[in-house]
Simulated scan of single mutants.
Amino acid sequence: MASCPKGHESGTLDYCDVCGARMGDGTASPAAASAVPPPLPATPAAVAPSAAAPDARVCPVCGTTQTGRFCEEDGYDFLLSPPVADPARASSAASTPSTTEPTPSETAPSEPAPSEPAPSGSTPPRWTVTVHPDSAYFEVVRAMGGEDASAMAFPQFAPERRFELTGQQMVIGRRSRSRGINPDIDLAGPPEDPGVSHVHALLVAQEDGWAVVDLESANGTYLNDPSSNPIDPNVPVPVNDGDTIYLGAWTALTIHAP
């Protein structure tokens, strides 16, 4: 360690860290040392705004970033994801006639393509759902009470119906001609279940199966145990082979995996 003119051992080389004298100069004092301004703190670098999440969805109608189920600008339903046509592209394609003449190479006969194996004709099995009345569920609904509970009657005859799950989503509900509602799994009667909403629930395709989503129905949607709480609306809940979805007053939908 260095020594100041007064004989103190100092860990610094400019001013003595004991008496404040300038190293090599005995005229400085602690007051002089304290007059030296401390170094300014480093200015933090400006933080660049984070880019939008790569998986953030935008509305296909207006381009607004999704913040909930419905677009804040035009009401587009991200959960149902209805297809949106591109009118500009369609009108451009319709108004632009094709004027390209075929080249000789295009009109000349080409070499035969290698033969491909013919399809077997059989389609892979798909998930299905069976719709049927459930008397035990009906008794649970009646036990819950309500002003119309005593007037309800379990149907004497209700045929079992089976639907194949195709595409990316299947709407469950009751058709309404006046409102233009035509669900994929139509639970309209006879017999008519009064507790089923016109747009009640949704089956959504997943990577390894399907999930059920309640679409804020009036009477809720139950999975496997109708005496428990209904599933939360607008939240996909995975379903497995043999699971049963309960809705309305007596309607049950049993899931069948391939």
Results as ranks from 00 to 15, higher is better:
222 Y>P: 00
238 P>M: 04
219 N>E: 05
220 G>H: 12
220 G>E: 10
213 V>D: 00
238 P>F: 07
231 I>W: 05
206 Q>K: 03
211 A>I: 04
206 Q>A: 15
229 N>T: 15
237 V>C: 08
235 V>E: 12
219 N>V: 09
232 D>V: 13
211 A>T: 12
237 V>K: 06
204 V>Q: 13
227 S>V: 13
208 D>E: 12
228 S>E: 14
211 A>W: 04
207 E>W: 00
206 Q>G: 12
235 V>P: 11
238 P>D: 11
238 P>R: 03
212 V>A: 01
224 N>M: 10
213 V>E: 01
218 A>S: 12
218 A>T: 14
229 N>S: 14
211 A>N: 01
207 E>C: 03
221 T>L: 08
225 D>L: 09
230 P>M: 10
226 P>G: 01
208 D>P: 04
203 L>S: 01
238 P>T: 02
218 A>N: 14
226 P>S: 09
233 P>L: 07
215 L>E: 06
220 G>A: 10
234 N>K: 12
218 A>P: 08
208 D>M: 12
221 T>P: 01
207 E>L: 05
206 Q>T: 15
230 P>N: 05
214 D>P: 05
204 V>N: 02
237 V>W: 06
208 D>T: 15
223 L>T: 07
203 L>K: 01
227 S>E: 14
232 D>P: 14
204 V>F: 07
234 N>S: 13
203 L>N: 00
225 D>N: 10
214 D>C: 02
